[in-house]
Design a protein around this nucleic acid. Structure first.
Lengths: 149, 149
DNA sequence: ATATCAGATTAGATATAGTCTAAATGATTA
DNA sequence: TAATCATTTAGACTATATCTAATCTGATAT
């Protein structure tokens, strides 16, 4: 996503394209490593324009509300963020907590009976297990049932 | 799940059945409202045996590690817990953050190609939208893209 | 050009959620 | 009984995120 596209997507989302907001969005589109708010704050402050911690959080919240960014809550760890450009699912590592993108495929929706009066917005598939780096290692995971075998 | 069954499931998970641990597990099997750690702490302290905050957290972590309890991270809110007795998916309300059980159905797994060297433990389906209580109301959601229509 | 004003940014205080520590207690084994 | 290990506890501490009140910015109106 280039500068113009980012600018446009912000405006489409009803958000003014401020330097700080742009920096957050640009960082997220350039890195699909699902950074935490703290990492984003650090990253955008390594270069101008600077941005305070509060602003980073404010902008992340605005971007999530506008539907441009997704917030991924991870058990026992800081939330992670990623640009919602290409649809995808997530793989969360039991051991290191890293979030990785997984190829998207359609998810069967629940039938309207079990949905009741609820209004469904999206179906999200989360895979859990050990990531490629953690799989070869042994030892205990931090946030998952112990591995039975 | 009766007292004996809870006791047994703890022991199967390699956990001693202490009064405090039992109280946490019993509360979770009796209430499928996905309480937070704070709510569980409060609940088990309304009756004997009392349990400190640290113990409540310790026991929740032990129960999760033993695979008896599931921890559900919710964006911007405290984690929620539920007994893993009957398999089910989750519906998380954009507005109030409540977690509700949804009828379980089999999820198509990713093909081994996209999985790579990762080791898959489970596939979790999360539905998002507005719960039955929030759906009729208007106004802004806290942690979700604004509703376009 | 200047005034106005809503939105945005800021530093730092505050709140919330969860973990850690060290001591005491309780259960199990030798 | 003595030794050992797991568990519990109160309260300190850490991490994550939000709030506050002052200031700044830039668009629009005058």
């Amino acid at each position: 996503m280039n500068a113009e596209a980012i600018k446009k997507s912000l405006e489409t989302g009803g958000l003014r394209c401020t330097p700080q907001r742009y920096a957050v969005m640009a960082f997220l589109t350039e890195h699909n490593r699902h950074p935490t708010a703290a990492e984003i704050f650090e990253a955008v402050n390594r270069v101008d324009p600077r941005s305070s911690r509060a602003t980073t959080y404010n902008n992340l919240r605005d971007l999530v509300q506008a539907g441009l960014v997704r917030e991924v809550a991870v058990e026992g760890r800081a939330a992670r963020f990623d640009a919602k450009d290409i649809p995808h699912h997530h793989f969360i590592c039991d051991r290191c907590g890293n979030v990785e993108d997984m190829e998207w495929y359609d998810v069967p929706r629940p039938d309207s009976g079990s949905l009741g009066k609820r209004v469904l917005r999206e179906c999200e598939l989360i895979f859990r297990g050990l990531c490629a780096r953690c799989a070869p290692r042994t030892g205990q995971t931090t946030h998952a049932p112990r591995q039975v075998r």
